[in-house]
């Protein structure tokens, strides 16, 4: 895009799953790229393939075909130590943070894990890093000793963001990361994500079924339907002039305040 070297280039990604004796096409030759510091919104109805796509980029599942180049490296060919090292550079935040943490862990413990696994810091260095991470996501240092299940949903999602930041990633995949939050908290977490991106130049893939939320944070939007990317372009253009039937349906389905 626009002469920038893409951070990630996905080409022709395909995936089918077995279901009820037949096969379901989850991804059908999906191609896109994303630049450093950019947010790509991935929007589509349930079952359109957006979560499958996100999980392939995280190397949680393998595609049947296609390629992914990340920072010039063939991401799908990585194994062992090189794959583990790469995992530090591509992080994730999911919808339900309680399910994404060991529920008995403390906030500090949850942040210590990635620092221990990916960093080369001693105990004291990690403690300083944890304090820094909490401050960056707007959480009070006194929360460090609290259990994950004791804090509020909004605080928990901030801890999930802090954990993703711990390894200094180039890309964070956010899968419905604000969908379970109360409205008043949701706006604050979105603003936090945008601020962090401005400071660090992190790229985001922001997966959601809610086009209005995606539009608030995405530079470009890709619309998915039945495993295919049916439309991709600058956020404003896609919202103002959708070309695909799915894009039009998603736009008309956004609840509007009727005053």
């Amino acid at each position: 895009m626009m002469g920038m070297t893409p951070l990630l280039v996905a080409a022709d990604l395909s995936k089918t799953f077995a279901k009820g004796g037949g096969r379901v096409v989850a991804l059908d030759h999906a191609s896109f790229d994303i630049a450093a510091g950019e947010t790509l919104g991935l929007v589509g109805p349930s079952g359109s393939g957006k979560s499958t796509l996100a999980r392939i980029l995280l190397r949680l599942i393998e595609p049947d075909g296609g390629s992914v180049r990340f920072a010039g490296v063939d991401l799908l060919a990585l194994k062992g130590a090189r794959l583990r090292a790469m995992r530090a550079r591509i992080q994730m935040v999911f919808q339900e943070p309680l399910a994404a943490f060991n529920p008995r862990a403390t906030v500090a413990g949850a942040l210590d894990d990635p620092l221990r696994i990916h960093g080369r810091m001693d105990r004291h260095g990690r403690k300083t890093a944890i304090a820094g991470l909490l401050e960056r996501v707007g959480l009070d240092a006194s929360l460090a000793g609290r259990a994950i299940h004791e804090i509020s949903g909004g605080q928990r999602q901030r801890v999930a963001v802090a954990r993703a930041l711990a390894t200094k990633p180039d890309l964070i995949v956010l899968d419905e990361a604000v969908s379970a939050l109360d409205m008043s908290v949701r706006g604050q977490v979105l603003q936090l994500l945008v601020d962090l991106q401005r400071e660090d130049g992190i790229a985001y893939i922001f997966v959601s079924h809610d086009l209005a939320v995606v539009r608030a944070v995405a530079h470009r939007i890709a619309i998915m339907e039945a495993g295919r990317i049916v439309e991709i372009g600058p956020a404003q253009e896609v919202i103002e002039n959708p070309r695909s039937a799915t894009g039009k349906a998603l736009i008309s389905a956004v609840p509007r305040l009727r005053l």
Binding site: T39, M183, L211, P234, Q236, I239, R256
Partner: peptide
């Protein structure tokens, strides 16, 4: 009033502009 202000729809000003800096 705060609930109404926190609502996000297609008329809400985006938090990011055209392209990344």
């Amino acid at each position: 009033a705060r609930l109404l202000a926190s609502h996000i729809d297609l008329d809400t000003p985006p938090l990011v502009s055209g392209y990344p800096a």
